[in-house]
Amino acid sequence: MLRLEKLTKTYPTGDMALQAVDLEIPAGQIVALIGPSGAGKSTLIRCINRLVEPSSGAAWLDDVNLTRLSQAALRRQRRRMGMIFQEYALVERLTVMENVLSGRLGYVGFWRSFTRRFPQKDVDEAYRLLDRVGLLDMADKRADELSGGQRQRVGICRALIQDPALLLVDEPTASLDPKTSRQIMRLIVELCAERGLAAIINIHDVALAQMFVNRVIGLQKGRVVFDGPPDALTAEVLTQIYGEEDWEATIRKPEDEDEAEAAPLPAGAGGA
């Protein structure tokens, strides 16, 4: 379980990116985090794994207070938190296989990591993951030869090979076309369901969030202003999160179920 207690981030300018955020996300639950730019979505994700240091409050992963850890202990705990980035964060000159295996760097010794000599079980798992996401035949291609959707799949594999308990996903579809965006969201949800992973997905596309998760958290100016199921995202709620606008075209309608039938949420994924 992930638990946030009064998590706050204040920047040196005095701007408060997060204001006393309280959240609980049980094992296996997939949550979409929505809100306008500057609402604190990326900051929240990065405060959990301390890529951004919170100013106060606590983030607990099971019984471990992540905000109190030394750097050495934090490195060990980061193995349990897979991160999927908006801009992929791949090493362009390395192969797909090398990029996936970089997710094991926290587990191998210095010389093995320096020479990229990984245990055979790690190599076997990397091949299995690449096969699962449909990239097995691209294992030896350089990352800079891939499309955006393919790069994001490599990023997903790199996060999963850590064998994490939690996925932190920052705008996984922001640079992708609508079809590829749905494929990537479907893949993340399916893989989380297969592994019993909890996930927080920072996403701008409200309709996409409604399509694939069962719990949505809305942030506004660093505060949680909505926490509930997708069908509770009424025009009034979206106005509270984003501001005044005609939201009728954004809210997913019952007649839009054709896509949901083509990509059903796996049993147990995202459930409260």
Rank of each mutant, 00 (worst) to 15 (best):
L136D: 11
L136R: 15
D137E: 15
D137V: 02
M138Q: 14
M138E: 06
A139F: 04
A139N: 09
A139R: 10
D140F: 01
D140T: 05
K141T: 05
K141R: 15
K141E: 07
K141D: 09
K141C: 08
R142N: 13
A143G: 03
A143W: 12
A143D: 09
D144H: 15
D144W: 05
D144Y: 14
D144A: 00
D144L: 02
D144N: 15
D144K: 03
E145I: 01
E145N: 12
E145A: 14
E145M: 14
L146Q: 13
L146R: 10
S147F: 11
S147L: 04
G148I: 06
G148E: 13
G148H: 03
G149Q: 13
G149N: 07
Q150D: 11
Q150G: 03
Q150W: 01
Q150A: 06
R151Q: 15
R151K: 15
R151W: 02
R151T: 05
R151S: 06
R151N: 04
R151A: 12
R151Y: 07
R151H: 08
R151L: 03
Q152G: 08
Q152H: 01
Q152A: 05
Q152E: 09
Q152Y: 06
R153Q: 06
R153L: 15
V154Y: 15
G155Y: 13
G155P: 12
G155D: 13
I156G: 13
I156C: 05
C157R: 10
C157Q: 08
C157M: 06
C157I: 07
C157Y: 13
R158F: 11
R158G: 11
A159Y: 11
A159N: 14
A159C: 10
A159T: 10
L160Q: 08
L160T: 03
L160Y: 13
L160W: 13
I161S: 09
I161R: 06
I161K: 08
I161Y: 14
I161V: 12
Q162E: 09
D163G: 08
D163I: 00
D163N: 14
D163T: 00
D163M: 08
P164E: 15
A165N: 09
A165R: 11
A165M: 11
A165E: 13
L166N: 06
L167V: 00
L167T: 04
L167M: 03
L168M: 06
L168Y: 12
V169W: 10
V169K: 01
V169M: 04
D170P: 04
D170W: 05
E171Y: 07
E171R: 05
E171N: 12
P172C: 04
P172G: 02
P172I: 00
P172K: 03
T173H: 06
T173Q: 00
T173Y: 05
A174W: 02
A174H: 10
A174G: 12
A174E: 07
A174Y: 00
S175C: 05
S175W: 01
S175R: 02
S175D: 06
S175T: 11
S175M: 13
S175E: 04
L176D: 07
L176M: 07
L176Y: 00
D177K: 07
D177A: 04
D177I: 10
P178H: 11
P178M: 05
P178I: 02
K179N: 12
K179F: 09
K179D: 09
T180A: 00
T180G: 01
T180R: 06
T180F: 04
S181M: 07
S181Q: 07
